[in-house]
Nucleic acid binder design. Sequence first.
DNA 1: GCGGGCATGTAACTAGTTACATGATTTT
DNA 2: AAAATCATGTAACTAGTTACATGCCCGC
Lengths: 174, 174
Amino acid sequence: MSLPHALLGLLAVQPRSGYELTKVFEQDLGRYAWQAGHTSIYPELNRMAEKGLVEVTSEGARGSRTYAVTDEGRAELRTWLLSPPSQGKVRNEQVLRMFMLSALEPADALVVLRRIEETTDRTAAELRRVREAEPDALTGPEGFGQLAAEYGLRQYEAVRDWAAWAIERLEREA
Amino acid sequence: MSLPHALLGLLAVQPRSGYELTKVFEQDLGRYAWQAGHTSIYPELNRMAEKGLVEVTSEGARGSRTYAVTDEGRAELRTWLLSPPSQGKVRNEQVLRMFMLSALEPADALVVLRRIEETTDRTAAELRRVREAEPDALTGPEGFGQLAAEYGLRQYEAVRDWAAWAIERLEREA
DNA sequence: GCGGGCATGTAACTAGTTACATGATTTT
DNA sequence: AAAATCATGTAACTAGTTACATGCCCGC
């Protein structure tokens, strides 16, 4: 159950409404770390408010409610981040696909690998472009920190390089 | 619902029993790609057998049943791997933790980052050692292919390098 | 013959998704 | 005035986990 911690982390950076949190999951977080739709987020915020981890700090137009972390919530987040990671849950469909490649004929595997190399290269290039153009776009209240942005970028590059390595290897064998 | 595809992929490499599949998830797959316990795997194998994607090829001691993919199962696996990846589900607690670091005080974040750097470095070193010592240990029927092994190794190294970068960055700021 | 690992399963629960639903405000 | 988007929610379903349960075989 990592969703509440994800929400605590986002709200610790800046208070937001459930709707805004949903968009963060759609755009950034959901791509790398954790997915959640608004139908999970709204009930979870209510539960967390009951427990005193977050609180509504203001209500806006269209019934929107802005949440912020309480001291108790911040303490819980800190405990979670500083406590030993144990063996966290992992579930990543893209990675699963890569692991299954060895079950394909080399010709088929090459098709998939070339696609992976191309798309990850394109994404990495775009992330790099955004970072260069507006170094603060991913920082501060809007984004989720430069640490995370850099992590995402390196992730894509690592996958791209791996795919290139795998292609070369398969082609040599063929 | 990627579990059936994971099972198809593993069985496509080599027929195995549910028990053996469970161990693969515990050791290798679960660390990087997809987690599943035996209580998910057994019922899923039965469902897949009903659908004709897999079949029991032999029964051994203690009621063990060895499954193999059918032609239909192999076709389904191929379709899945070659079809556009859309936006696969991602849920990775470790990565979530990294994304949440910017919500911590720099001093706390440094503690976590140093731990990440140390543990990923140790794991990467060990993976590299295993690969050097027995290049075939991770290949063939036992493991899940050198492609996947290399992917795992690069993954750990990428995280380690990112953590080192982040530490240096935070220390410069402080 | 007994202890530990092999091997499979079921039931109750938890987390998250999909589909459905509603209404308010802003934009065109 | 209509369309788009903001903003929240509920209900039914699906996937996976935790806890519980059972029996068999091999090595000692």
